[in-house]
Design a protein around this nucleic acid. Structure first.
Lengths: 195, 195
DNA sequence: CGTGTTTTATAGTAACCGCTACATATGTAT
DNA sequence: ATACATATGTAGCGGTTACTATAAAACACG
């Protein structure tokens, strides 16, 4: 144990509460007061543990991605490209419709626009979204090498399309779309995919 | 001419400036100071003409939709459902990539999340997005009646899918996706559509 | 010209924003 | 016990927010 007075709250639990606030209100819409109330701590504790609002957001974002990493890993490890995309789209639909979580996707609605003070967060989210496209593309490239996708298919275009469908589902989920609505989007999108 | 001192600014021109600010920063991220500076007026003129920030946003939103109505009308009036969707997706890709405008789509990034004070705006945008899905669905229903779409196709699912692709392109455009990126998404999405 | 009506610019308002100084509490090390 | 190090709660910092009170300016009327 380290020296000094021990921390009276659990960091991961506090991060989960902060994540929920950011997920619901976005980076800009979440106030320090919102966050400290949800986390059950006072501002000095927040700043001592996470630096500032942006640092807290990044930590919460890491936790968000970690919670979704399993779905992506399992989906993309499916034997065929089609199955991988199918699992990814249907899993995302299910996740977005999960009523235990706030509506929508933090990676999309965390900071899609905003004032100058959240420019860095906006760029960070955009970069992470691009990284997720890379993950899909690399899986599809492998599929093409393995003869699992036609020779004339374009993994980059397909990957960006799949990501667009995911982002579109996230927007509709934020607006209140039902689980069935999202599942239908996923199913329809799969028709664009080489069987 | 009406009685009293005449207004010293053009309302529509001021709305265009306000639209650009909201489009770039979103409802929450746009400050009255940002808006008045861009519009070339002082706060009292803004409040006298538009009520409050939300009223100004709604007027700017009307103007935004009016500017895009032509594209939608022309696209959806195409002879076949496939052509209609093709024009809609490709036209949207082109519009989102137009560098004369801010990145992305106001209907999506205007207020996808935010604090309590923009709950009404968030709901308004979600409702307008749903209304645009209705427009597509009605066109596809007609197509099905006319035998232009297969008997076993589902206009509601297809419409929601097309909208999701549009929303997804908007998210990617907000993140800096190129014109070609967006066009490839549109082209790929069309493969999901009954020829 | 004077009167009435509306818009304008100045200069604020109270409330909230992210963030922190400070004193106190609570632990370890000696 | 004493000293040290870190966390905590209170209370409030300067700055920004959306919005407005006020008075002067600019028009149409009689």
């Amino acid at each position: 144990m380290t020296i000094g007075r021990p921390r009276a709250f659990d960091v991961n639990e506090a991060l989960d509460r902060a994540l929920e606030v950011f997920w619901t209100k976005g980076f800009e819409g979440a106030t320090i007061c919102d966050l400290t109330s949800a986390m059950g701590i006072n501002p000095p504790s927040l700043y001592a543990a996470f630096g500032n609002k942006e640092g807290l957001f990044r930590k919460a974002l890491d936790r968000y991605e970690a919670k979704h990493a399993a779905l992506w890993r399992e989906a993309l490890s499916a034997p065929t490209a089609y199955e991988a995309v199918e699992r990814l789209l249907k899993g995302t639909a299910e996740s977005l419709a999960d009523k235990r979580n706030p509506r929508g996707c933090l990676m999309v609605q965390g900071a899609l626009s905003g004032g100058e003070e959240c420019e860095a967060v906006k760029a960070e989210l955009a970069a992470r979204r691009e990284a997720s496209i890379d993950l899909i593309r690399e899986r599809l490239k492998r599929a093409k090498r393995e003869g699992d996708l036609p020779e004339d298919s374009d993994p980059a275009s397909l990957a960006r399309f799949v990501a667009a469908v995911i982002h579109g589902m996230a927007v509709q989920a934020a607006g209140g779309a039902s689980r069935k609505d999202l599942e239908r989007v996923a199913t329809t999108a799969l028709r664009a995919f080489p069987a």
